[in-house]
Design a binder for these strands. Structure first.
Lengths: 74, 74
DNA sequence: CTATCGATTATCATATATGATAACAATATG
DNA sequence: CATATTGTTATCATATATGATAATCGATAG
């Protein structure tokens, strides 16, 4: 699978978890102390996100980091 | 937990899996098409690694991406 | 001893992730 | 209608991850 697809899978996973918790992009961004535009960029898979931001997102969403990468084909 | 500790946990996890498969840092680096010095940097947790390189490493080690983040405290 | 192998560290240039701002669209709601 | 909410996209400056090279170290083999 192409690497860009991984970005998209992770971004969409973040979006699903966020929506499950009924949090808006803007609120999540505020928790992370980043701009909402950055959240849109991340969720749409247009960035090769770093572990630091993945970790912050996992913390804010209350899910383990590993959960955000589940279902990504080996 | 401090974010730098996450880098170290992930780096050490990569190292453990790599050693389990009896692959040298240099050989793994070669599979990833990166320099061995970069592998040392990653495994020692001195870099805020991106999902792209995490994915490449998971592929080369033959483990799911999520496995590389297992055991990281929420 | 020398040579080799695995790994570490420092350094540099370059690519790019990030933080930030602004403009915009779609939808709901007064 | 106006206005608020939610999300998207473009753009820019800055911080930093990466790719690369070289020097170094420890251990081990010859």
């Amino acid at each position: 699978m192409r690497e860009e697809e991984v970005f998209i899978l992770v971004g969409h996973k973040i979006r699903r978890v966020r929506q499950l918790k009924s949090i808006s992009q803007q609120d999540l961004a505020a928790m992370l102390n980043i701009e909402k535009s950055n959240m849109a960029r991340i969720e749409s898979g247009r960035t090769n996100i770093t572990i630091r931001n993945l970790y912050r997102i996992a913390i804010s969403l209350g899910v383990p980091l590993s959960e955000l990468m589940e279902g990504i084909p080996l």
